[in-house]
């Protein structure tokens, strides 16, 4: 038997939380229903009471809970975020996922036994950055940014003293996470400050001259033939013109599916694999978790992994192994 990788799954609602655990998730990542987490969407995430119940459910089933408090606290309102850390600790979370230096400093002093994970929003992309967080705050695990290749991840793991977690499936940030203000430039709302990227409140679809145009903050992000599926206008995945180029300037719309790389990621010393998408439906979460749990069990048991089974669930039906196989380097 090989060493088992930990499967970390997102949950945006208590129902999705239970479904993910029942489908085989080892660990659930989730957040409170406010601007303290980077998936701050209407109707999503957990009240304190829901969180308390969910943590109890997870612990009964031998699963772990990670609470993401991974936006950057607003100046003058730090106590809203520090209170979230206090509440997470009080409710018995297994770890908190943080990005902000001030909040990490607070948590490490106020809750010395609370396990700290570094959010991908901190964009710690090399061994020295990771060691800085480990030394300064006792961070125990780092979620790696989605800009690294498998050999780069292996090299990092050889140098650091803490665990790493990498994304295996779901949406991809094109830019370095936590270092992007594109959304606030167009809408005034940003992932760092408000926990929302390209927010639905600023989206507009309009038919113009036989085309369906989707706009964000008034800027056209996509134009598609009427009747064709209009993609959600996530800013960095839009079609633009630059010089003579016309098309996806930043990234082709594809979502991450690195199932086929599970053996290589294990070999690279990764501890946990993370599925993106706290904003997804319960059915989506359940299907993805079931498929990946099977893949991990197959890997641990020395059986081949069957990849590509989740194609129907991915955005635009196209998948990529992202930076893990760096074709564009």
């Amino acid at each position: 038997m090989r060493e088992k990788l930990e499967l970390v799954c997102p949950a945006g609602t208590p129902a999705a939380f239970r479904a993910a655990i029942d489908a085989g998730a080892h660990t659930i990542s989730c957040g409170f229903n406010d601007e303290t987490n980077a998936r701050n969407f209407p109707g999503l995430n957990f009240s304190r009471e829901e969180m308390a119940q969910s943590i109890k459910y997870a612990h009964r089933k031998d699963a772990k809970v990670l609470i993401a408090i991974n936006t950057f606290p607003r100046a003058g309102a730090f106590s809203r975020w520090s209170q979230a850390v206090d509440d997470a600790a009080r409710l018995g979370t297994d770890a908190v996922i943080l990005a902000d230096l001030g909040l990490l400093d607070y948590a490490s002093h106020r809750h010395p036994t609370l396990r700290l994970h570094l959010s991908v929003q901190a964009a710690a992309a090399n061994a020295d950055a990771i060691e800085f967080y480990a030394k300064s705050f006792g961070v125990r695990r780092v979620v790696l940014p989605r800009v690294l290749s498998v050999p780069e991840i292996a090299a990092i793991n050889r140098k650091i003293s803490v665990e790493t977690e990498v994304f295996i499936f779901g949406g991809l940030c094109v830019m370095a996470e936590g270092r992007c203000s594109l959304s606030s430039y167009a809408t005034g709302k940003s992932p760092n400050m408000n926990g929302a990227c390209s927010p639905a409140s600023h989206v507009e679809y309009r038919e113009e001259a036989g085309e369906l145009v989707s706009r964000l903050g008034g800027f056209a992000i996509h134009r598609s033939a009427a009747g064709a599926a209009a993609p959600y206008p996530t800013l960095c995945k839009g079609c633009f013109e630059a010089g003579d180029y016309r098309g996806h300037v930043f990234e082709d719309p594809a979502s991450l599916d690195a199932a086929s790389l599970i053996p290589q990621l294990a070999e690279a010393g990764v501890t946990a694999l993370k599925i993106e998408g706290r904003q997804r439906s319960r059915a989506y979460t359940e299907a993805v978790v079931r498929s990946f749990r099977k893949a991990l069990d197959d890997h641990a048991g020395g059986r081949p992994i069957i990849a590509g089974q989740l194609r129907d669930l991915t955005e635009g039906q196209q998948t990529t192994s992202g930076a893990y196989r760096k074709a564009w380097r």
Partner: peptide
């Protein structure tokens, strides 16, 4: 011009059909 984002990928190379290296 306001710095808004940084990426692992080079967009100048990308739109000119070149690789980063």
């Amino acid at each position: 011009r306001i710095p808004l984002a940084i990426s692992g990928r080079c967009y100048h190379a990308r739109i000119h059909g070149l690789s980063k290296d």
